[in-house]
Amino acid sequence: MSNPFIKLLGLSLITIFISCGGGGDDSPTEPIATPPTPATPISPANEEVCLDGKSVSDTQSEVQFIWEASKHTDNYSLVITNLDSQQTTKHSSTTESIFVKLNKGEPYSWYVVSTSNKINQPAQSSTYRFYLAGEGTQSYAPFPAEVVAPEMGASVTASEGTINLRWKGSDPDNDIQGYELFLDVANPPLSSLGAVTDQNKVATVTSGNTYYWQVVTTDAEGNTSNSEIFQFKVN
């Protein structure tokens, strides 16, 4: 004759075993990786002449690049472009500073890419531009003009057969005298639209064409700089 108490005790033990994880999965959840935040450039300062480079030869100086640390970051990549030659170099760092040798008297842009070992979502800082001081240089050429509109590679709709081209010019000496705009369906553009003092120009365009345009900036000393060649398509 079976004992009801013994049966009840057995069922209770089975229930306790199941409720305490027998067959369940209580493994800890992996934390979600957080992407890096963008770094903040500090030095060389934006739109200025860098006088802090250490001369290492008649033609080169060693420049210290400094930026504010970004969160959730394991590595940084410093990207420097010579705005005259358009040559770009990349330099890796695990700290917020790095020394790089550059040619004197030439304009540069730089930004920092922050990366994490835990997640493939890099973050890019804003871009700074500067001139590296040259030996005995008293006047610096303007920075190459930057596109505002139409954006590079954009498709646009003309208004009554015209479009307003806009750009941004800057000069470390603050003595820009004017701009000459070139626009063409050929690359490089050779047709001049004339000189202006404003940073915009209305141009006549034809639907279906792809256009290339470039801005030449001139300062009070006669120094000039050429922008990169911008491109847009007219719907």
Rank of each mutant, 00 (worst) to 15 (best):
F130E: 07
S227T: 05
K54D: 13
S116L: 05
C50G: 04
T94D: 11
G22Y: 00
F232R: 02
T94R: 13
S109M: 09
L13W: 10
S170R: 00
A186R: 12
T197V: 08
Q86H: 14
S12D: 04
C20D: 14
E180C: 00
Y108V: 09
D74I: 01
R166I: 02
L165C: 13
G24K: 14
V215W: 02
I163K: 08
N46W: 04
G161K: 03
L181F: 08
V196Y: 11
I42G: 03
L181M: 06
P41M: 10
V112S: 07
P172I: 03
E96W: 01
P36A: 05
D184S: 13
C20M: 15
N235Y: 06
P41S: 04
N209K: 11
V147Y: 14
V156Q: 00
D198K: 05
E47K: 11
A203D: 07
Q177N: 11
S27Q: 05
N103E: 09
T204F: 02
T89F: 03
S85G: 01
D84S: 13
D219M: 07
S93Y: 04
N164Y: 08
T224A: 13
N200A: 05
V215F: 00
S43T: 05
E151W: 10
A141N: 00
Y111G: 15
Y76V: 15
T137E: 15
Y211G: 07
V100D: 15
E221Q: 15
Q177G: 10
F17W: 08
V196Q: 13
I18N: 07
Q86V: 13
V185P: 02
T89P: 02
G169D: 06
T89Q: 13
G178H: 07
S207Q: 14
Q60W: 03
A33G: 09
R166V: 08
S192R: 01
T89A: 06
T73G: 02
K101T: 03
V100P: 01
T94S: 15
P107T: 10
F182I: 00
